[in-house]
């Protein structure tokens, strides 16, 4: 099959899920307009959620989810050995994601709360790069399907991969939205990396930082915005800690 009129060499790709909701890999199937063209570029050799084919000869491994059990550590290491390029997909893989909220409680307490006297095995949540070398990170909860597609196409065609350095605020203003701070909500748009199209703030809901820190974020200014709108950093903390992607420097303030 041709992609945009040319016949590229198909790249072998595998998608692997660890501890997560599997919403990120679903995004790949959710872009119906370009799905057929996108699939024409790829040789999907291992994608358990949509296919019974279980190939081990993949060039690119997409890793979704965080790592929370010993068998996952072993599985991840095996995939790393086979893959030429390993991509962490989504906030769980990149930062631990919402799963890492668990880490603020003692592990025995967490297990008892859910399983009572029938405990199950679990470890503190780790991100993929805590275990193996990661070649590329695509954060987001869920990932933006446009972004994943663009990146995979760039990987296949050998084009350079770039992420925005500016924060969500820039995209939000471009969408001509009313600032959600002015709607009375806390928003992490000033410090979170753009690329999502400001989908949450356009829906009049404050950003909770799923894409991690923006390179060009100004934390001093963010503290000032919080202050000007009558919020403390403490009130913002619950959101800052939601995905585990934002730096501690924002946290240690009065």
């Amino acid at each position: 099959m041709k992609y945009l009129g040319i016949e590229p060499e198909k790249i072998k790709i595998g998608s692997f899920d660890f501890t997560c909701c599997e919403g990120c890999q679903l995004q790949l199937a959710n872009k119906e307009d370009t799905l057929v063209d996108f699939l024409a570029l790829l040789d999907v050799v291992n994608f358990r959620e949509i296919s019974s084919h279980r190939g081990e000869d993949y060039d690119i491994a997409l890793i979704e989810g965080s790592i929370t059990r010993a068998d996952e550590v072993e599985r991840l290491k095996k995939i790393r050995k086979r893959a030429k390029i390993l991509v962490a997909v989504g906030s769980c893989a990149c930062f631990g994601g919402v799963n890492q909220i668990k880490n603020k409680f003692p592990i025995e307490d967490v297990v008892r709360e859910v399983y009572g006297d029938d405990p199950v095995e679990t470890l503190p949540v780790r991100k993929v790069s805590d275990i193996v070398k990661v070649d590329l990170e695509i954060p987001g909860c869920p990932v933006s399907k446009e972004e994943v597609e663009r990146i995979v196409v760039n990987l296949v065609t050998g084009a350079e991969i770039k992420f925005p350095k500016y924060p969500v605020c820039v995209e939000c203003r471009r969408n001509l939205n009313t600032c959600v701070f002015d709607l009375g909500q806390i928003c992490l748009g000033p410090i979170t990396r753009a690329g999502c199209g400001a989908v949450c703030t356009t829906g009049k809901t404050g950003c909770i930082g799923c894409r991690g820190p923006a390179e060009e974020a100004n934390y001093e200014e963010f503290r000032q915005i919080l202050k000007d709108h009558g919020f403390t950093v403490r009130q913002a903390l619950e959101r800052i800690n939601f995905y585990g992607g934002l730096p501690e420097m924002v946290i240690d303030e009065s």
Partner: peptide
Amino acid sequence: ETPRFFEAMLRGMSHDLAPMLTARICGICS
């Protein structure tokens, strides 16, 4: 499957974040 312990994570969380957190239980029926 590896459990994620959402019920434990919810303790101490603001009520308005609960729908956002628990949506993440499932990528299909969020």
